[in-house]
């Protein structure tokens, strides 16, 4: 049976050279990143070219996606938060398309690598921190100091609040990475069972079981792909809300 880990290997497709110790190449990961961005451009730029008042199917789809992100941002951050709309939009669409592309048989799942999800989460948290300090100055750090608390308690509470804040990008990245990784590993394993059973003589009669399981798991993985993108986007909006209106 094939290793379920193999599918996550970064394979260089076109070698480009080296930077220090690492070899830079056009890899399968890079390829699928570009395919994702290409599809997004196709849908949103090409599909809305006609800007018609009564939208066709593709423009309708583009409008639905845009409206979902725009409403989420506006609800949580108000009108001055709309400047973050391109960022949240890009994040949501990138994660969504990368997740969904991974469901294509034989494709590579970009978001199943921790470095990618960590980079995206770092982007979010640094935007929050930098914008928070820029807009509110030192008052931004009031985020870590809950009001109405005895000073002795603060010695314990402030580190807890800081840890809580730092855990946000960690949870953001680990959630996406772990779900994608686990989902694809499970798919590979159960699909492998089908083949194993088929070649095990008498046990072949049981092979429809893992088949049914794999089908159900595939459906679940589609749901998870969309949901993980949704959760990533909504949490980004929530964290941005904290940057725009820090408490106390």
């Amino acid at each position: 049976m094939a290793s379920p880990i193999e599918q996550f290997e970064i394979k260089p497709l076109i070698k480009l050279g080296t930077i220090g110790k690492s070899e830079i190449a056009f890899t399968n990961s890079a390829l699928f990143m570009m395919i994702a961005v290409g599809l997004i451009i196709l849908l949103f730029v090409y599909g809305t070219r006609s800007r018609s008042l009564i939208p066709g199917r593709i423009q309708s789809l583009a409008e639905m996606g845009y409206e979902f992100v725009a409403n989420t941002v506006r609800d949580s951050a108000g009108h001055d938060g709309m400047k973050f709309l391109p960022l949240v939009f890009s994040l949501f669409m990138f994660v969504l398309f990368c997740n969904l592309l991974g469901m294509v048989p034989g494709a590579f799942t970009v978001t199943s690598h921790l470095i990618v999800t960590a980079a995206l989460a770092a982007l979010v948290i640094f935007t929050v921190i930098i914008y928070g300090i820029y807009k509110h100055g030192a008052h931004f750090f009031g985020l870590f100091v809950p009001s109405g608390v005895h000073p002795l308690m603060l010695i314990i509470l402030v580190p807890i609040e800081i840890i809580s804040f730092v855990s946000r990008p960690i949870s953001l990245s680990v959630r996406l990475f772990a779900n994608m990784l686990a989902g694809h590993i499970a798919l590979k394993i159960f699909a492998g069972f089908i083949a194993t059973l088929l070649f095990a003589g008498g046990w072949a009669i049981l092979s429809p079981l893992p088949l049914a399981l794999t089908i159900a798991l595939t459906a679940l993985e589609f749901l998870v792909a969309v949901l993980q993108a949704y959760v990533f986007a909504v949490l980004t909006c929530i964290y941005l809300h904290d940057a725009l209106h820090p408490g106390h």
Binding site: I163, R168, I170, V174, A178
Partner: peptide, 12 residues
Amino acid sequence: FRLSTEFIAGII
């Protein structure tokens, strides 16, 4: 999904 990782992230 959010809750699934919030606890572990704190520990990590």
